[in-house]
Simulated scan of single mutants.
Amino acid sequence: MMPEIPAAEDSLRHWLLWLTDQLAQQGDAPAQEARWILEDVLESSMELWRSPQAPLGEARRARLLSLLARRLDGEPLPYCLGHWSFMELDLRVDPRVLIPRPDTETLVRWALAHLPVEGAVLDLGTGSGAIILALAQARPDLDYWAVDCSNAALALAHKNGAALGQNIHWCAGDWCTALPAGQRFSLIVSNPPYLAANDPHLMELAAEPIAALVAGETGLEAYQAILAGLAPHLEPGARIGFEHGHEQAQAVRGLLQRHAWQEVDTLTDLAGRKRVSTAVWSKDCA
């Protein structure tokens, strides 16, 4: 139900305060969400700061109220806005893909530090394309590939790539089976589904695509499938980085070791949680 709309004052500052009050029961950062919504409506991050007494106007008010209604109905803010920031990229997002999260920056920063001098980079389970596009923006000279089993997700990722002027090889299919025979990679990154079917966090994520969240009964099924099919596509000395749940680090490291990966390590995210496991491929142990 739409709250009572302020009638007297139309200034941007007044709308910001009103929005903050309306969003107070919806999330834990109502002031920040209110600012994001208002800045999106204004199509500017500066107008609110420069002209707080300027009027919002009828057309912009209609969009603001539409966005607020969706947010109050429980829709995640990034889906309401239709875009979200990740590693300084402004990416289109909608219910076809997961919302890019700061946790994944741990994987991207590791990958940026290990990009090869030349060769191909692979992102398995690309979703919105956030990871591969962040890498391609930093080093556009490399050959970038991305796989997803969802054609709908790939369509959105392709739009994100086109908007950034990045030419990515987008491949539809089930993990490594989507790759051409003989194509090899020096760096592989993946943030695959890693929740178990009965994971209690799923209730909080009901608006996001379940296929991108749930791997199966154990939550490890995607890692197992990737590692089982990846060996023919690896250059000697290739590196891999997996994002995972903070309680899965030991299990993912064990899978990597059983599939002949070496130098297995785990990195923590900004909150100190075990978030990314990495390893190096050796041709001698294949």
Rank of each mutant, 00 (worst) to 15 (best):
P102A: 09
V108D: 01
P100S: 15
E118S: 15
R109N: 11
L112Q: 04
L124P: 01
P116V: 07
A113K: 04
G119H: 09
L98D: 14
V117I: 07
G125D: 06
L124S: 02
T106Q: 08
G119W: 05
H114A: 11
T126A: 13
D123P: 07
P116Y: 03
T106G: 12
V108G: 03
V117W: 02
G119Y: 07
L115N: 14
T106C: 15
A113G: 06
G119P: 15
G127N: 10
L115Q: 12
S128E: 08
A113E: 08
D123Y: 05
V97G: 01
I99L: 11
P100F: 11
A111M: 05
D103N: 08
H114Y: 05
R96S: 15
V93N: 05
W110F: 00
W110G: 00
T106L: 10
V108Q: 01
P102D: 14
S128A: 11
R109F: 04
P95Q: 08
L115I: 13
G119Q: 11
S128D: 09
L107H: 00
G125K: 02
T104I: 00
L107V: 01
V117C: 06
D103L: 09
R109P: 07
D94E: 11
E118W: 02
W110R: 00
R101T: 14
P116A: 12
P116C: 14
L107G: 01
T104F: 00
R96L: 03
P116K: 07
D94Q: 10
I99S: 10
V108A: 07
V97I: 04
T126W: 06
R101F: 08
D94I: 08
V93R: 04
V97Q: 01
L115C: 15
T126E: 14
G127A: 06
P95R: 02
P100A: 15
P102V: 12
E105T: 09
R101N: 14
I99F: 05
S128Q: 09
P116S: 11
R109V: 06
A113C: 03
W110Q: 00
R96K: 13
E105F: 03
T106A: 14
A111V: 05
R109T: 12
G119D: 13
A111I: 06
P102G: 10
G119F: 04
A113T: 09
H114K: 09
P116L: 10
V97S: 02
W110K: 00
D123R: 06
P95T: 02
G125S: 09
A120C: 15
A113M: 07
L122R: 03
T126M: 08
P95K: 03
E118G: 12
E118A: 13
P116N: 12
A113H: 04
A120T: 14
P95D: 07
D103E: 15
L107N: 01
I99E: 11
T126S: 14
L124I: 15
R96I: 03
L107I: 00
T104N: 01
P95F: 02
L112A: 01
W110V: 00
E118N: 13
